Simulated scan of single mutants.
Amino acid sequence: MIALVLLGILALVVGGCVCVVWAERGGPRWARAVAAVTLGAGELLRRSGKNRSQDLDQSTGGGE
């Protein structure tokens, strides 16, 4: 069951990356919408990763 969920997530990620490339080359409107969602989700994940690493540095006393 977990493998199916991971495969589904992988399919969404790969599909989103394909839409980003396709939209960059002037793809249809729906591909541009999927690309925008994909890029937005990536930015949110990047920001949450930075926040977690900063929180971890503060809690362990590192980063100074």
Rank of each mutant, 00 (worst) to 15 (best):
M1Q: 09
M1Y: 03
M1W: 08
M1P: 08
I2G: 15
A3G: 02
A3Q: 14
A3L: 14
A3W: 05
A3I: 10
L4Q: 10
L4D: 10
L4P: 00
V5T: 06
V5S: 04
V5F: 06
L6W: 06
L7R: 11
G8N: 09
G8S: 09
G8A: 11
G8H: 03
I9Q: 09
I9S: 04
L10T: 12
L10K: 03
L10N: 07
L10I: 11
L10G: 14
A11L: 09
A11M: 06
A11F: 05
L12H: 01
L12E: 06
V14F: 07
V14I: 15
V14K: 04
G15K: 07
G15E: 04
G15L: 03
G16T: 01
G16V: 01
G16M: 04
G16E: 04
C17V: 12
C17S: 10
V18N: 01
V18I: 12
C19P: 00
C19H: 07
C19M: 10
C19V: 01
V20F: 05
V20T: 06
W22I: 09
W22G: 11
W22H: 12
A23Q: 01
E24N: 10
E24H: 07
E24F: 04
R25K: 14
R25Y: 05
G26S: 02
G26P: 06
G26K: 01
G26M: 01
G27L: 02
G27W: 02
G27Y: 01
P28L: 05
R29I: 08
W30N: 05
W30Y: 14
W30P: 00
W30R: 11
W30A: 07
A31P: 00
A31C: 12
A31V: 03
A31Y: 02
R32W: 02
A33G: 00
A33R: 12
V34G: 00
A35F: 03
A35V: 10
A35Q: 05
A35D: 10
A35I: 10
A36F: 12
A36Q: 10
A36N: 12
A36G: 13
A36P: 01
V37D: 03
V37S: 09
V37M: 10
V37L: 14
T38N: 08
L39T: 05
L39H: 00
L39A: 13
G40Y: 02
G40I: 07
A41Q: 03
A41W: 05
A41E: 01
A41H: 00
A41N: 06
G42L: 08
G42N: 02
G42H: 01
E43H: 00
E43A: 15
L44W: 06
L44S: 03
R46A: 15
R46T: 09
R46L: 14
R47C: 08
R47N: 12
S48P: 00
G49P: 00
G49Q: 14
K50I: 12
K50W: 15
K50T: 09
K50A: 13
N51R: 13
R52L: 15
S53G: 00
S53H: 08
Q54C: 06
D55N: 14
D55F: 13
L56K: 11
L56E: 13
D57T: 03
D57L: 13
D57V: 00
D57F: 12
Q58D: 13
Q58S: 10
S59T: 11
S59Q: 11
S59V: 13
T60N: 09
G62D: 12
G62M: 08
G62T: 04
G63N: 11
E64Q: 09
